[in-house]
């Protein structure tokens, strides 16, 4: 039994839900004293990065941000239960690629990155020309099967980043709090 499975089993024995203040404090990077659920799809070290991305994509302003709603937890659940196997594999490749590039750009591991580092990462890959944006979505729609090997890292990276963005939007904008308009901080 690997460590992750063991941790998960302990959590199950505790009734699935553990408190962020327990010794099993996991992926509660942006808030404290919240009830959290152990990740099913991502590694707990990945969750810090996902929360970092979500914080840039849907930040807290005068209204609540995606991390106020534990959207990373929702993203994890969706990746585990909704994505097909091939998509899951691509996301796993994508998060590896993201980590690699994060280190190249910021000289830090994602788990050590601060808000400015994540801002820099998102800007690097999202602040692109319209032409590049269209090319990215065309690449994603066509799938990875026929892509040249040297382009595949870009494919996996964007599969990961756009999935986090899409699921983050879904989790945020279809939440009860946002749909009922009670969003002022």
């Amino acid at each position: 039994m690997d460590r992750r499975t063991a941790v998960k089993n302990i959590a199950l024995s505790l009734g699935l839900v553990v408190s962020g203040s327990t010794i099993l404090s996991v992926f509660n990077a942006c808030t404290t004293d919240k009830t959290v659920v152990l990740p099913e799809f991502f590694k707990k070290s990945d969750i810090y990065g996902i929360e970092g991305l979500v914080d840039i994509i849907l930040p807290k302003t005068s209204s609540i941000g995606a991390n106020d709603l534990n959207t990373s937890q929702f993203i994890d659940k969706m990746c585990y239960h909704v994505l097909l196997k091939k998509q899951q594999d691509e996301i796993r490749m994508g998060i590896q690629e993201f980590s690699k590039r994060f280190e190249e750009i910021t000289n830090k591991l994602p788990s050590n990155g601060n808000r400015e580092d994540y801002q820099q990462m998102v800007a690097t890959y999202f602040d692109v020309s319209e032409e590049r944006e269209n090319a990215v979505f065309e690449m994603l729609e066509n799938g990875s099967d026929k892509l040249a090997e040297n382009v595949k890292p870009d494919y996996y990276l964007y599969a990961f980043l756009t999935t986090i963005r899409d699921l983050g939007m879904l989790g945020y904008f279809t939440s009860q709090v946002v749909m009922e308009g009670d969003i002022e901080v």
Binding site: I56, L58, T61, S63, F126, D127, R165, D166, F173
Partner: peptide, 21 residues
């Protein structure tokens, strides 16, 4: 249109969120 109008984009941040609300 609702927030889904921005799915096929790479936009992000405060203005993006405020617009989609």
């Amino acid at each position: 249109t609702d927030w889904r109008r921005a799915i096929k984009e790479l936009s992000y941040g405060k203005d993006f969120k405020d617009d989609l609300l």
